[in-house]
Computed example of a mutant assay.
Amino acid sequence: MPTVLRFNGLRAVIYPNDHRPAHVHVMGHGCEAVFNLHCPEGPPELRENFGFSLKELNSIESMLAAELPTACAEWEVIHGQP
């Protein structure tokens, strides 16, 4: 599972054998959330949350929005067109 981004003690990963649509799993602090990326324009959208607070989710979403080109490019490297 390639880590494509790191921020605030969290990591965003894309599983090589995962399904479309383009998305990342954000993990850390004993929690996990899945965000659909909506490549290439965004915005990232929360799909699933396992333990993050609303404040943490808002911060993660902002960070993913800022790094959307990188996340989408990594998805394309691993899976082809989003």
Rank of each mutant, 00 (worst) to 15 (best):
N36A: 14
I78E: 02
L54F: 08
L57S: 07
L5Q: 03
R47F: 02
P43D: 07
L68V: 06
A73N: 12
M1Q: 09
M63E: 15
P21Q: 03
P69M: 13
V34Q: 08
H79R: 04
V34R: 14
G42E: 10
Y15L: 14
L46C: 10
F7H: 04
A12K: 13
G30L: 12
G80W: 13
R11M: 08
E74Q: 15
C72L: 08
P69N: 06
H79A: 01
H79W: 00
P82N: 03
N8C: 06
G51P: 11
C39N: 12
L54G: 12
A66N: 13
P82F: 05
P44V: 03
A33V: 07
E45I: 00
I14Q: 09
L37G: 01
I60K: 05
F52W: 14
G80N: 07
R20M: 04
M63W: 01
A33L: 04
F35D: 01
N49Y: 08
A22G: 02
S59K: 14
L37K: 01
R6V: 13
E74D: 14
V13E: 15
E74A: 15
E48D: 09
A12T: 03
I78L: 15
E76F: 00
P44Y: 05
H23N: 12
F35H: 01
D18K: 09
E76K: 04
M63F: 10
G80L: 07
L37Y: 02
P82G: 07
N58L: 15
H23K: 04
A33C: 04
I14V: 13
H29Y: 10
D18Q: 01
Y15T: 11
L10E: 01
E56Y: 06
Y15E: 14
P21K: 04
H38D: 04
F50W: 06
F7V: 03
W75H: 05
F35L: 03
N8G: 07
L5N: 08
P82Q: 05
H29V: 10
A12N: 08
S59F: 10
E56W: 03
P43N: 07
P21G: 11
L68R: 13
V24N: 00
W75M: 13
G28I: 09
I78P: 09
R6S: 15
D18E: 15
H25D: 12
F50C: 08
P16A: 12
P21N: 00
F7G: 00
P82R: 02
P2Y: 07
A22T: 10
E45T: 13
H25F: 02
D18V: 02
N49L: 09
Q81Y: 00
Q81G: 12
H25A: 12
E56A: 15
C31M: 12
A71G: 08
V26E: 06
D18I: 02
V4A: 02
H79V: 07
N58I: 08
E61F: 03
